[in-house]
Design a protein around this nucleic acid. Structure first.
Length: 447
DNA sequence: GCATGATCATGC
DNA sequence: GCATGATCATGC
């Protein structure tokens, strides 16, 4: 039975359950939910569903049941564990469809969508996704994602339509003709291969047992959404002992001063070093991030930037920003300009440096940075001069690097023909604001 | 060796 | 096809 003392979560509160569940990330059931009994290794066929049962019983302390109400009924939350597999390139995809509640042919025909057992049980789901590996015992599967998921928006509508279609077929006495191809996201899949076809109220013809399921491709979309952004904070109590910056810096600590080969070796990875985004990918891997976006950086509008220093400490390149539109600059003032907005955000600099002797690139330092107010004033000068020049239709005297210690303007396009319309009616090669490498150097040395 | 112009590579 | 981050190429 559920025991509030033993299991450290509040069963009435979905976010408390979620926090407790998040402790599973990158852990196995063997570590997190030891069983009082000895569980013997068993062939894979007998293991199906064991992960979920074990998770419920020994991690959450709820008795396995197949009731039509959600597993955490006070929080209206259903617990679902599901296997995922790793693709080449490190991303994840579902191993199989997610089987939901069994369709009761006699009961469902009396239901409406809003009051359906299906919706009641599956509207709000706590996903625990574990990495399936063929030769592993289920207690040793690694949990990769824990996610609170709600059926909403367009997905909800399409699934409602799928549900209606399935129910209509049953009402018409055609349950034996149900097929997964009937519907889009929600399928009526076979469940229990040894089950004999059974009769039901709407038909003389008996039908095989089926269950609702989220199709594999639909599961794929859920997993992809998860991978789109990933949190840097892996444990919910981490922020109690460290601030966010420390958490981030700690991730890099063991790699500082190492060359990139050593870093890869340490991470046990082998990246394509000639890729243009190599240093960025490497930085993500040091942070243990496989997603495209970093959740906290998104929310805080932190821009991650790679800076590569030559052995003398000067950045190899100036830092570019998105190109500006000549016409747009004329209509804006500094504070509402794109460039001002870009400079006002916080940056996370990852600095690599070329080592003179060994000809290797080392991880030099990482730090959060935002532009000091007095330097913003300098950038403002550059922006104002740019605006002025455009208003006078002079397109050959944009602020040069030598004119300002912080920033300058220069082309930023695919080629000379990649142009943008200007107020004088002509088009000119796209240009953007850049931060001077020497300026970046001074900021790197200060931090 | 640096400033400036030009372009590549990737991802959406 | 384009935006963007990253990088190359040229000339002084």
């Amino acid at each position: 039975m559920y025991n509030q003392d033993k299991y450290d979560y509040d069963k009435n509160d979905a976010s408390s359950i979620y926090d407790y569940a998040k402790r599973l990330i990158n852990k196995t059931l063997r570590e997190m939910a030891p069983s009082p009994m000895i569980i013997k290794d068993a062939p894979a066929t007998e293991v199906k569903g064991k992960f979920g049962q074990h998770l419920e019983k020994y991690y959450f302390g709820i008795e396995n049941n197949s009731k039509s109400e959600p597993d955490f009924k006070e929080a209206s939350l259903e617990l679902k564990s599901t296997p995922i597999k790793k693709l080449q390139g490190g991303r994840y995809s579902p191993k199989e469809r997610l089987v939901l509640n069994i369709i009761n042919y006699n009961e469902i025909v009396k239901e409406t969508w809003e009051k359906s057992h299906f919706l009641n049980k599956n509207e709000f789901i706590l996903f625990v996704m574990y990495l399936y590996e063929k030769d592993k015992f289920f207690l040793d599967y690694l949990v990769k994602y824990v996610n609170l998921w709600k059926l909403e928006n367009n997905d909800r509508e399409i699934i409602r339509q799928d549900w209606e279609k399935i129910v209509a077929k049953i009402r018409n006495g055609k349950a034996h003709e149900l097929s997964e191809g009937d519907t889009f996201y929600l399928g009526a899949c076979r469940k229990g291969h040894h089950e004999k076809p059974r009769g039901y109220s709407c038909s003389q013809i008996s039908a095989k047992q089926r269950a609702f399921s989220f199709k594999t491709k639909f599961m794929k979309s859920i997993i992809h959404r998860l991978q789109d952004s990933e949190s840097l904070i892996k444990k919910s109590d981490e922020l109690k002992s460290k601030n966010f910056e420390e958490i981030v810096y700690d991730k890099f600590r063991e790699f500082l001063g190492l060359n990139v080969d050593k870093i890869e070796e340490k991470l046990k990875i082998n990246l394509n070093e000639s890729a243009k985004n190599y240093y960025e990918v490497l930085a993500r891997r040091m942070m243990k991030i496989t997603a495209k976006k970093i959740e906290e950086f998104e929310k805080a509008n932190v821009k991650m930037k790679i800076i590569r220093l030559k052995h003398n400490g000067v950045p190899k390149e100036d830092m570019s920003f998105p190109y500006f539109k000549y016409n747009e600059i004329l209509t804006q003032n500094w504070t509402e300009s794109d460039f001002c907005g870009q400079l006002e955000s916080k940056f996370f600099f990852i600095v690599y440096q070329m080592d003179k002797d060994e000809n290797k690139i080392l991880l030099k330092k990482v730090f959060f940075w935002n532009m000091p107010a007095k330097d913003m004033e300098e950038a403002k000068k550059v922006w104002c001069k740019t605006q002025n020049i455009i208003s006078q239709n002079v397109f050959d005297s944009f602020p040069k690097k030598s004119e300002n210690e912080v920033s300058h303007v220069r082309p930023h396009a695919r080629n000379k023909e990649d142009t943008c319309r200007a107020p004088d009616g002509n088009s000119y090669t796209k240009k953007s604001f850049w931060l001077n490498s020497q300026y970046l150097q001074s900021q790197i040395e200060k931090n």
